[in-house]
Amino acid sequence: MPILEVKGLKKCFGNVAVLEGIDFSLQKGEALAIIGSSGSGKTTLLRCLNFLELPDGGSISVNDEIIFDASVPATQSEEEIRKKRLHFGLVFQSFNLFPQYTALKNVTLACELLAKDAADFKEDRKEILTDIENRAKLLFEQIGLSDKLYFYPHQLSGGQQQRVAIARALALNPDILCFDEPTSALDPELTGEVLKVIRSLADKKTTMVIVTHEMQFAREVSDNVLFIDAGVVVEAGKPEEVLLNPKEERTKRFLERYSNA
């Protein structure tokens, strides 16, 4: 049983169709790399999964439950979407850490806000908050930033900020963690530390969808690769097949252009 199943996903901006019916599925513990040139629709696909854009057509199911169906308005209310999007975590290209909070608070904030909605929050307030903080500190150990808990984002390097952003997305225990070109905004010498963290997540069998330009990294870390062009899935399969022996002409051309660049 796949953990995520996307069927016929469509998205238009005005008259421009960006996604023209995307189908794919994801098994628990699988890392999927999505590649494609700029404007191919790969980032839009990721934004649709996180409901930053509402798809115009198709459906999204998680653990066999349809969490979004473009033909069922009931799945599109703001409140529904707010709950459903917690199945997904998203790491942005430009980190988007909250500048006024410490690294630690960036990670704990959303958990605290969710905990406050719970019925038993008032009685066990202290315990719950300590628990959230302890879990966050464990995440900081994972990303190797235990010494930066109380630093503000502007005091951290780009690579460190992105690692905190990963911890922030992990803190809510999403079923599927999404990365939107996580190293594109970084200086080349800082990409390594971020890739290392993502690699360690792959080793722990975290379910991930990674939109990336790093072909080498995609080959190492992913279990499957999806090549998207002009809003459709052109080729999908194991990384060694898609990246080394592509069947489709379009994929070949993309990879050639990429290796020339």
């Binding site: 930053l52 707010r82 709950k83 997904f88 975590g89 998203l90 942005f92 806000l113 997305a169």
Partner: peptide, 25 residues
């Protein structure tokens, strides 16, 4: 930046929480 709103959204915050906890300051 729009990213600040979006970061709040993907973390499951309500519009009110996003405004008061993230944007206002």
């Amino acid at each position: 930046p729009r990213g600040q709103y979006e970061a709040g959204q993907v973390l499951g915050m309500t519009k009110t929480q996003i405004f008061f906890k993230i944007i206002l300051l």
